[in-house]
Each structure stands twice: as structure tokens, then as C-alpha cells.
Design a protein around this nucleic acid. Structure first.
Lengths: 223, 223
DNA sequence: ACCTGAACACCGTTCAAGT
DNA sequence: ACCTGAACACCGTTCAAGT
């Protein structure tokens, strides 16, 4: 995001008509939405809250965006801009893919509300998002992946990444069977043996390693 | 779900006080919510719509559930009840895991609104959910998986499954770079080479095969 | 105990009026 | 063109009153 003041000119403007210079810009709205999401969590982004932070009436936003979904799309493109796909075309594809997946997961772990948006929003007209997919796709192609498999590989990794991003939001006791412990000895055993710490990350790294190993085999047998 | 009439006694009751026999039950509320989700999609489930379908005032629901989140939790447990984990303890673990993952993905593809709920809701007091995890965990344990890895395997597969369930909601043209096609030759090449048909399923099957192959290697090297 | 109906504090969005 | 302020049709939830 190009830097934009977090909050607009402290006091709300009192004039009634068109301002002499525009108060809002598309980038300013996006930056405000990102900040709101970061500060207040996923329920914190409302059109009213966004307008207040920008020092305008909620209806003023609709001169710049058609819907709240538009705002989410712009935020998503901004988040994707921060994902590291620099390894493609430089490092071996397995390393590039692993670094991309980690960076991607971390970005959406910070913005879980965007996960369902990301899974469903067409890429067209989201420039950073298109740039990311281009880097990944062309990287896989030039690493020797057959063209007909490339998008499936991207989608499979992405599905795992987005699911893992959601998993970071799970409470620590999500697998505690509670009253039903007596009926769940296997769950209890597995939970007790699971090492403490960042369990979401451990599960992600295990899955990522498995997925990459399987993809390596698949490429070897496909070529 | 135990069978329950889809809509309650056609005409709304006119009496003002406590009914002679209860109009609502927890199971009836859950069944109504499932039906609403299935018929009207994820935005169709509102407390008002649910109440109307059950022939009561919205506030009546709050005698049986504390919040809408409660309703979602109950629906989730009902959905999990339908997931096939019968292979564990019967078939080789790879086959059982694959069948479970497919069934799990299909169930949540029908209920994408529950994906974020599932990722975050503690399992305690959701009997069918606990039963599912018990079957899976004990199946992996008796197949020789080290206890400290079992939950991570479950979470990794689940993350991939839930991400893949979200992906089924993506429009067919999600990767169409639109105006930006000129800047995205790799994406364009990969898209053009991707076979038509159920692309979400193809990506899921590719990822599942890779994940399973990687897990097989991991188990071999861990034991 | 379990319902109704009114009320509360919100949502996203529209639109006439103002400059 | 781009803002304000009032309005609309919703939300989820609370609560007094009724039987």
C-alpha cells in the first residue's frame, strides 16, 4: 500500500457540500480497512467504523466503492502484495514453493476474515494477486512441471495454506473431548503426546513437508 | 439428524403465553437450520428465517440456544455425523484416510459457511464430532503412527480438506487475469492447458495423492 | 418453562439535497 | 464530482408480560 495517513484530518469536516479537494481515495479506504482489520479483528471492519476512521459519513464511501465486498477485494490484493514469491525462478521449485506457502499462510493467519474471500474472488483486476500467480505459475512451468498440472498444483497448495491459516485461529483446547473423554481414548492419547508450543505451525510444517514430498514424486513420475 | 417435520404446524400459533406442549426442540432447531442452509445458502440462515420456518417468533429460539453460534455448532455436529470414517480400523490407513478426506470435503462443500466454524469450534460436547476424531485418531494409532504425530496428521489433512471445500465455491473463471492477461503469460498458459471438467475435484485429488504419498514416506522414516 | 411482541443497538446501502 | 444526513430494510439479542 502506498503510505496514507492512518486517520484523516482529526476533526470531522463540517461543510455540507462537495469538498474543495476529495477527502477519500481508493488507496486511503483500503489502508483504513487494513488498519481496522489489524487493530480490531475481523468483526471490526464495518462501513461505519471505516467511515469514522476516515472522518466521513458512511455514505461517502459509496462514491468510491460499490459494496463492502469491493473493500474486501482491495484489502485482499494488498495482503497478497506482501506474500513472498521471490524464490520462483531463482531457487529450486520445492524451496520456492515452501517459502511461498509459509509466507502465504502467515499473511492470512493475520487476516482470517479474508480466507473465504480469497477462495472465491476472481483474480481479474487485482494486480498484485495476478502478479503473484504469474510468478508462481511461470516458476513451476520453467521448473519442468507439465502445463496441464500447474494450476492444480497451485490450487492444492493454496487450499492447504488457507485451511492452515484458519487453523491458526483455533483455540488451544479445540481437541479436548471434555465430558466425552471416556468415549475418546485415542483422541486423549494423541493429545497427551502432542508436543506443546505452536501446534498449528507444527501441523502446517508436517503437512507442507508431506505435500512437497508427494509433489516431487509426482513430477518425477510425470516427466 | 432424527427426522423432524421440516416446517412446524402450518399456521403460526396465536396464543400469547406458554404453549401446553413445547413447540421447539434442540433437534428441531438444528434440522430447520440445516434445511435453511441447504435451500437458501449460507446467507439464508438468519434467526428470523429460522423462526419463521419453525412457526415461532425469533425470540422464542433463545429459550433453547444462547446464540446463533450455538445453532451453527449444532449444525456442524450434524454435518460431521454424515462424514464417512468407517475405513479406519478396517482398511489400510492410507485408504481410510483418503475415503475420510473425500467424504469430509464433500460434506463441507455443501456447507461452506461452516468451514470457518469447523476450524475454530472446540470439539467438546459435540458428540458426533468427537466420535469422528476418535475413529480417525485410534485408527492412525493402531496403524502404527507415533502418538506425538497423530494430531498433526489429522490437522494437516483437515486443513487441506477445508481449504479444498472452500475452493469448490470458486467461480470457473477465478484465474482469468482479464485485462492483465498480457502481464500474465504463465497463468494464461497454465489455464489453457488445464483440462475442463470438475477442476476443483482434480486439484483436490492431486493434492490428496501428494499428501498421502508424503505421509507414507514420513511414517516409514519415523518408525 | 416457554411463548409473544416491543424494543435496542446495530448492519450495509440508497438517495435527495448541498456546494 | 463528492460530500452530509435522513431513511430503509434488515440483523442478533434482550426482556417484560402472558399463560
Amino acid at each position: 500500500m502506498t503510505p496514507v495517513p492512518a486517520a484523516a484530518s482529526s476533526a470531522p469536516r463540517r461543510g455540507r457540500g462537495r469538498p474543495s479537494s476529495p477527502v477519500l481515495t481508493a488507496d486511503g479506504i483500503t489502508a483504513g480497512a487494513v488498519a481496522l482489520l489489524e487493530e480490531r479483528g475481523q468483526d471490526g471492519l464495518t462501513m461505519a467504523a471505516l467511515a469514522r476512521r476516515l472522518g466521513v459519513a458512511p455514505s461517502a464511501l459509496y462514491n468510491h466503492v460499490a459494496t463492502k465486498q469491493d473493500v474486501l477485494r482491495a484489502v485482499q490484493d494488498d495482503v497478497n502484495r506482501g506474500i513472498d514469491c521471490s524464490g520462483f525462478g531463482r531457487d529450486p521449485w520445492e524451496e520456492a514453493l515452501a517459502a511461498w506457502a509459509r509466507s502465504y499462510r502467515d499473511a492470512y493467519a493475520r487476516h482470517p476474515a479474508l480466507v473465504p474471500v480469497m477462495a472465491v474472488t476472481p483474480v481479474g483486476s487485482a494486480p498484485h494477486t495476478v502478479a503473484m500467480y504469474e510468478r508462481v505459475s511461470s516458476g513451476l512451468l520453467s521448473a519442468g512441471w507439465p502445463p496441464h498440472l500447474v494450476t492444480n498444483v497451485v490450487v492444492a497448495v493454496e487450499s492447504f495454506v488457507l485451511g492452515s491459516a484458519l487453523d491458526t485461529q483455533a483455540p488451544a483446547d479445540i481437541f479436548d473431548p471434555g465430558d466425552l473423554a471416556a468415549t475418546a481414548p485415542g483422541v486423549t492419547t494423541a493429545n497427551a503426546a502432542r508436543p506443546e508450543g505452536d501446534t498449528a505451525r507444527a501441523a502446517f510444517e508436517l503437512g507442507l513437508a508431506a505435500l512437497l514430498a508427494g509433489l516431487r514424486d509426482l513430477l518425477a513420475s510425470a516427466s
